[in-house]
Design a protein around this nucleic acid. Structure first.
Lengths: 194, 194, 194, 194
DNA sequence: AATGAATGAGCGTTCATTCAT
DNA sequence: CATGAATGAACGCTCATTCAT
């Protein structure tokens, strides 16, 4: 029923990002997104089941692209420590390149209803799995300490990155996000103790 | 205009926590909170400016208590490393003792509108300052590495704790949160590298 | 939840009859009914579950009154033949006195959705039972032929009355409906054969 | 503009009957009828003015066939009483042979908008004229009572038949409709009085 | 102080119809 | 002739807030 491809599909998703970033989640009406995408309101329902589906698809498309890029890049890096650095770097790069997308995924979509949030959680899981595999590999190769709990480490890595991006947005993206990557990477590896 | 004291003030805040935890942010209507607090809808407006004010006051009351407790406890601890451990422990203890409050502050209130979120951010700032002061003290005393950026460390500490609590709730609080504290503390101090 | 009494309850039902009669079923929006009843749109939902409930309640109130009147009147008439005459007369009188109600029940409500129509059918059943009991009594007292099937007779009586009222409305209520009662009664009793 | 012939014309009408019978009037969208008829949505507008025209044409085609059959059959019957019996029998036979058509004409099309209903009324008029002519002839030949009003008798005859068919459908066509014909015929001729 | 009935602005979605191909 | 993607008007319902009592 709902075609999930085509240039209008993309146009609607991109319009949704712009509208949500500009007006905020609660003022991003379907009719506003349609107008921004230069299609009729009804056209949105030829490509998406409903409004929630637009938001979920938005996250899925953008996150899907990101995870693919991360996986491709990490595959060419042997060292888990370097993989971790690259993951942080890519995460920051991806959002720093597109402030609007950053606002939408970090701030606005988190106000969405439980159904949307649940779907987002499922999509995000794939990213967390990538983090897990980096940590796992590090332990196996003896690069990371054998006694660390993978899930605890993953939550530190994701939680820190997420909080860093959110802070950056709250400060109006005034400073460079990517420049933070190195320091965070060092913190992850060596901790704060002398 | 709005009385910020009295037993009904507390009753309404506590009712809001229960209703939001049970029904979720989007189904926590003023009338439902009023019924839970055993007052009339209109009575809420004698104690609060509006619904947003209820949510902000809720966070302010609970977070205010928490920050006070943390400050009191840390004041009696000399070592910054021990202070950090205690901060993590208290954070977890506070939310593990009150699952409903945990759900409300970690999950539900994050769906609130920009105005509420902004106020929450301001309140939260006081907690972040506490974290900053612990890190600062650690650096000054030579316990923590002198080259770490305080804000970066703070985001790691808060981001990790926050993500850990959120994961715990998403997994239905099935395991002990406080038992995670030690591992996280070690990770903060020593990092993941061997 | 929905209060089914009070002067506003009646005002809304009466406004619904007027609006539906004037604008037709498909143009009888909730906001139009509210305006006609001099209440806010939301007030309708304090007294009714939803729009369908307004329509069902309308039919239930009006039909309920009518059935009560019919039962009361028939109770004071001994002869089944006279009871039948009175039933026809009352049916015509009730609708001739209120053209708008006639239009709503005979024409407009029949365009309603399946849920409403089903409820109307259930309410109407009580009226059909009254017809049945008159026929039954006639047979038992030997006034009506013993070989007639009660359900067949009931369908003739109701079908004829209903068709007569609908024709009358379609002809813009230009002639007297009650004057038809006697002829119909004779037709029911004696048939068309010489 | 609209071609009123061709195999697609018939295919669309037949598809409309099937779709309306299966899904009900309110769920019989043009696109669903088009799919059932194996044509494109737009093709319907090459054969019909609009959706209303499909419904009216449907009724016109089916009712036209029926009236032609009735007239042909009655022309070969001398007795008005026998003509009446045959008319009832044919009416029942026609609808009992095609349950879907019965559902559409008796139940679903009555939910249509005023414009469609008006056109249906005009088409139906031809059938009512046939009933009138039977009654007229009966009176003229002295078989029926001279004092009966033709229109009253017609409404009784049509109203009863119509109500009988509707009841039959509402009871899921569980019993034989044609078996009712004889009893109804007797009721018309002799009435219910002993 | 407390009540709770009343208010009314705001929006996602459907589907008959069109028209470029 | 035939297609089917695109159009856009129209509306029931919720719920934070008010105010007469």
């Amino acid at each position: 029923m709902a075609k999930r491809t085509g240039e209008k599909y993309q146009a609607i998703i991109d319009a949704a990002v712009r509208v949500i970033a500009e007006y905020g989640y609660h003022h991003a009406q379907v009719s506003k997104i349609a107008r921004e995408a230069k299609v009729a309101d009804g056209t949105i329902y030829l490509y998406f089941e409903n409004k929630d589906d637009v938001l979920i698809s938005l996250f899925n498309e953008k996150m899907g692209n990101f995870i693919r890029d991360v996986k491709t890049t990490l595959a060419n890096i042997a060292s888990p420590a370097e993989q971790l650095k690259e993951l942080i770097r890519l995460h920051f790069e991806y959002l720093e390149k597109d402030h609007q997308l950053a606002i939408v995924t970090q701030i606005e979509l988190r106000q969405s209803n439980p159904e949307v949030r649940q779907q987002i959680g499922i999509i995000l899981k794939k990213y967390l799995d990538v983090i897990d595999s980096v940590v796992q590999k590090g332990i196996e190769e003896g690069i990371f300490r054998p006694d660390i709990d993978i899930r605890t480490a993953r939550r530190m890595i994701f939680g820190t990155i997420d909080e860093t991006v959110t802070s950056w947005i709250m400060k109006d993206c005034k400073y460079s996000l990517m420049e933070q990557a190195e320091a965070i990477h060092q913190l992850f590896l060596r901790g704060i103790a002398r």
